[in-house]
Design a binder for these strands. Sequence first.
DNA 1: ATAGTCCCTGTGAGCGCTCACATTTTATCA
DNA 2: TGATAAAATGTGAGCGCTCACAGGGACTAT
Lengths: 336, 336
Amino acid sequence: MSQARRITMNDVAKKAGVSYQTVSRVINNHPSVAVETRYRVLDAINELGYEPSRAAQNLAGRESRTIGAVAFGLNDYGPSQIVINMEKVARDFGYDFLIYNVTEISRGGVMAAIRHFNRWQVDGLFIIPPTIHAVYTDLVSMCNYPIMYIGATPDPRIPSVAIDQKRGSELATEYLIEHGHRQIVEISGPLDWFHARARHEGWRTTMKKHNLEPQYSIAGDWSAASGYCVAQQLLTDTMPMTGVVVANDQMALGALRAFHEAGWRVPEDISLIGFDNIPEAAYFEPPLTTIQQNFKQLALQSIELMIDILKNRDAHSNHALIVPELVVRASVAPST
Amino acid sequence: MSQARRITMNDVAKKAGVSYQTVSRVINNHPSVAVETRYRVLDAINELGYEPSRAAQNLAGRESRTIGAVAFGLNDYGPSQIVINMEKVARDFGYDFLIYNVTEISRGGVMAAIRHFNRWQVDGLFIIPPTIHAVYTDLVSMCNYPIMYIGATPDPRIPSVAIDQKRGSELATEYLIEHGHRQIVEISGPLDWFHARARHEGWRTTMKKHNLEPQYSIAGDWSAASGYCVAQQLLTDTMPMTGVVVANDQMALGALRAFHEAGWRVPEDISLIGFDNIPEAAYFEPPLTTIQQNFKQLALQSIELMIDILKNRDAHSNHALIVPELVVRASVAPST
DNA sequence: ATAGTCCCTGTGAGCGCTCACATTTTATCA
DNA sequence: TGATAAAATGTGAGCGCTCACAGGGACTAT
């Protein structure tokens, strides 16, 4: 099998009887090409099965039409949803999307990611930082292209789009209070996580707002296992409580098990509310009332803002916040 | 802010007092560079913060050291695990990894993905096809680089690495039979999915092997919702049954709910076994006995085989199969 | 001393595009 | 009708690398 030579712009130009520059114009939708010429070139492209070389385009051009994303732990529901949705939206806008998953949260890990995108000459970069440890502001100066934070706003100078985690937690806490609950405890995430901290704050301030004491909060590690352990601890501490705000659905699942095992009925004896609305949440025992985040919109706004920045249209808002929604199911009952 | 010119190989060469070719040799770990020269170049690289341009490398070189992956529906547990693990392994082997998620399973969708990778000049391509509809053998000829199928073997002529789904289902069915179950029904996935079909076959043949009639099998769509519906149907049909083999954990979760609502206790009244071992499975009510797949190993073997093919070392095995494992928890009890 | 060998380093060309310009063609108006 | 602008097309250069080859110095063998 002969190593087939790549079909180039010149092959297309020859076939269509035009110069290579005209082919380039057609590819890039440049306006000043005669309609008839454009069709002739398009036909030649189809017949030859020509595909422009991204390598050559990136090398010759000033922009690469490529956006990168650095995620930390794509196993988690949130980050993976964000990245998947972004990839689709970016493509719809004509941008290619490069993904880099940092497995080790450290200066070196982040630097490797940034170097990766330097080599690929992305036009812009999204960073989806889970914890304060993933933020190295000084490393950002290594990039001579725009950066955006997604899901958190660790640095006011850098544009960001995020879902309002605090608001979500307020929604959850309010909902319990509306149902007559007064003794509401929290199972939080690890408090060095942006989301955990924001959700924790939402619970705390909402309690205060209603003149309730946010007395008791224990942190899990987001896993169902930790939710189980923490809930057990809650039970042995014999806290007076009628409602629990849980920082994610997995931990809520674990808590559910712990309560069942201890003979507590949910929601009759204790009300529970989660966060994330993972696909399984509707089939928990009982179906979980939780907070839903609109990742599609997050992706859309992120990409739009990024493109605005790239096009130098000055972006009206540099820190967008998306409001999450309460999904009512069956894990909350009125407090007696 | 001046648009800083990119630092090139020539800048490094000048600084280190060598020719650009020597810099290139250092970057590519070419053996014939004097140790002292190498260090001089390395120092210059570090001081200048030089990063080789992937665009230029790809354009000039014959290989791009880049591997692509086409996935269909990265929301699903399996594909996303595969891709995440592959990205890491590829990077460890010095390859960059490009991901393309096809949202619409159709000829056009697959072709768009292939064209994408043609433009990026990947050295090799993984395809992770969920259903027969994602396989367009003729499109493969559009690629002048090696293709591999991951997770299924739709075409014997194309190398593949997969987890033995049939074996997993056999394990599950055997386990129920060992526990004295005779009337074992199946909740399968949609039978145009490779995994669904293989798991279905595993159940069927194992039943036959033990002279049991594989009488009853209904297909869900992998979702917890469908597991719930299908289980309800099972109950209204008043099938005599003591065990259920479910094709994934989400559907098992739905089935669990349906049984609970109908007043059936799991595992006392009915035994249930899942497939996938999603992180939540251990905290279902009861903790789910299920089948675990080793995605890390899948990723490792896939990348290794791909690199073998790229290096023209003739790969000993073209169709690798990884054996899954049974994870025993509490959803199966002996049949009385 | 001469040739042969290895090790290390340098030179010219070109990958397939886009950019900035130059040039030709066509339409528009006095 | 010619001048003038506007639309369409073409030309030269260069992006930052790798490839294939050409050299030069230090060593060994003759």
